[in-house]
Amino acid sequence: MNKVVAGADEAVKDIPSGATLMLGGFGLCGIPENCIHALVKKGINNLTCISNNAGVDDFGIGLMLQGRQVKKMIASYVGENAEFERQMLTGELEVELVPQGTLATRCMATGYGMPAVFLLAGIGTEVAEGKEVRNFNGKNYLLEHAFDSDFAIVKAWKGDTQGNLIFKGTARNFSPLMAMAGKITIAEVEHLVPAGELDPNAIHVPGIYVHRIFQGDKYEKRIEQRTVRKRS
């Protein structure tokens, strides 16, 4: 079953304005750079984006914010983006802040076919407002719903023509969960190989979850906080 498409433009060509998108990555680590560039070029707007972060001003989802393509952002941490903060404070951008583990688990619930989960995070805080609370074994939990996402867009390290994916290092983060959660899942990979070349024991996301796959033209892989030790 061949899932390969020619490139980023083709992969995102049917994403309409107003769609809900999941975008993998943690900070700038493991973000689908090529698809983001294609979405910026395509110029669609009124998007709802679900992603742990919102990029920085001039990279990642930040590029889509610059073009006012995002109507609503669902994220856990948005501290690295001044344009985001400006749009949020002026009310141009609707924002739902979700605890990081809750965000991940709501993605997971979608991919596992579960409508909702009970989670601890946010009990007694403003995150709990309006949510159903259930007590289990003497502890209160919030009912948190699975996401409903039209598209999931992720970047993997390696993938094969059947859509099987392998991630590298901490670039894995939200990406397998989101890949499993999209009604249509688009995977861009650094290395695309023929089916049979990846070790089946090492697959993080089986191809059944992936609808389109391509090898990205280039990866900048920008580092947000370069911290090093001096060589003595």
């Binding site: 700038l28 690295e80 290092g169 901490t170 580092i223 906080q225 911290t227």
Partner: peptide, 20 residues
């Protein structure tokens, strides 16, 4: 710990987005 200068890897960061 943080990597030695030149060994930093964009795919290997901590929750503060620092290379590790």
């Amino acid at each position: 710990p943080f990597p030695l200068e030149g060994d930093e890897d964009a795919d290997l960061i901590n929750a503060g987005k620092q290379t590790i």
